[in-house]
Nucleic acid binder design. Structure first.
Lengths: 245, 245
DNA sequence: ACTATCATACTAACATGCTAGTTGACAACA
DNA sequence: TGTTGTCAACTAGCATGTTAGTATGATAGT
């Protein structure tokens, strides 16, 4: 009933880019296309063109789609078809909530247990962020930003934590792709990162959590503005179904 | 090198117990057998007996195993076999950490937004717990305990939260099956639940979090004692591999 | 013109055959 | 007896044929 347009399979990254089994590589290829919005919300995810483009049979593609459905990136309609899921403010809000829960637990633990070596690595990352802003390297700053949060999670010693955090906030990451980074926002982000870093360095759990909460709190209002501007990407009529594990 | 004994497929719950696609039902059947320790850690998960027992072909079974591997309940060795994963203190600790992060965020939000209707439902659950203890209905109390936490998560309005919380702490749930509930521990648990309930009713975020943290903190020491008693269930030599999403 | 009915062309789900790689046992040998 | 090489049996991964259910568009009826 909505936009039954098909995906453009040629936008799939080649599977030789990735490693692992065929199914694993197909999964990563499709996932990247969805997260980069090369496969827009609502698009029909047809198996045949994907098989043709990637040069594989239907089995690994079906396997990949099963995993994507479990993560909520696609909606499978039995015996009918598979579509890239629309944005849903409910799901995005939930992803942000889960993400915040994990980030707060992370900074608390890191503020408690920070070693001198870890402090140096964080400090280096923050100073790198300064440099990249001076050079107006937006993409570089985006990458350093991701690394800042990844470092914190790595310091907890929890191996699966980065993966879990990424999975629960997939919808948030996808929506974030649509937000244009302005110089003003980037400068603010740096200041927020620095506040987090300072609180952690001082081993001040509570201050670190407050700083992180403030930092993460900047995102949702911007996404909500996005919904006003591009409502066609969102599912206003929530006919989505999701199975329980 | 370890115990290459096979699973006893007859312990699989019949798939007519569940609903959804064949693959979905096979997944739930195997998952239940693993969590109930009917399939013990290290056991060889052979496809053929599973297909025979459940009366399905290999396709839905393979699909189910893919999902179980993603959740870390089984370890797939390519071109060799699939085994039920051993307990790992690292993974259990991580699961407890993630679970605590989510539960703390949950009680904070619920303490903030609690409605009178929700308060009544919680109160009813706590009083039910009292009754079940009086009747010495251990299984009933276990169930009410689960429901207590499920209610809190439901009250946040986050639809996926219960599922995420369950998934990240699957290993903890499995290990918990081995802990024998003593009357003393059950009485303590009730007191802890009541403390959480009181703090939430008073809309005291911090007290609710402290109470929840104390409550969840009781579990890990008991599991660590378990490791001393039954080390054969744990992977002392961590040769586990897990792919990143 | 507008609606109800039905046939056709799609799809996911499932079954099954094939391939290649790992493992473990056994034999040949030191 | 201890070690190494070979082989057979088993596995997951992959390809492909089959089935059944859904949606769409043509057609017939009003």
């Amino acid at each position: 009933m909505n936009h039954p347009y098909d995906i453009d399979a040629t936008r799939l990254p080649d599977i030789s880019t990735f490693e692992g089994s065929l199914a694993q590589r197909v999964y990563q290829s499709i996932k990247q296309a969805i997260l980069a919005l090369d496969f827009p919300p609502g698009a029909n995810l047809r198996k045949a063109p994907i098989c043709a483009q990637l040069g594989v049979s239907r089995a690994p593609v079906a396997d990949a789609i099963t995993r994507l459905a479990a993560e909520g990136l696609v909606d499978v309609v039995p015996q009918s078809g598979t579509r890239v899921s629309y944005f849903s403010m409910d799901e995005i809000r939930e992803g942000a909530f889960l993400r915040e829960a994990l980030e707060l637990a992370t900074v608390a633990k890191v503020a408690r247990d920070l070693t001198e070596d870890q402090r140096k690595k964080l400090s280096r990352n923050v100073r790198l962020q300064e440099l990249l802003i001076e050079d107006e390297d937006i993409a570089g700053f985006y990458h350093a930003d991701e690394e800042f949060h990844a470092l914190l999670m790595a310091f907890t010693g929890m191996l699966r934590l980065p993966d879990v955090a990424q999975t629960v906030s997939l919808q948030v990451s996808r929506a974030r792709m649509l937000l244009l980074p302005t110089p003003g926002r980037i400068a603010e982000t740096l200041a927020e990162h620095r506040a987090i870093f300072d609180a952690i360095s001082a081993h001040d759990e509570r201050a670190a959590q407050d700083a992180m909460r403030h930092h993460l709190g900047q995102l949702m209002p911007r996404i909500e503005r996005l919904q006003q501007e591009r409502p066609q990407l969102f599912n206003l009529n929530p006919q989505n179904t999701r199975e329980a594990g």
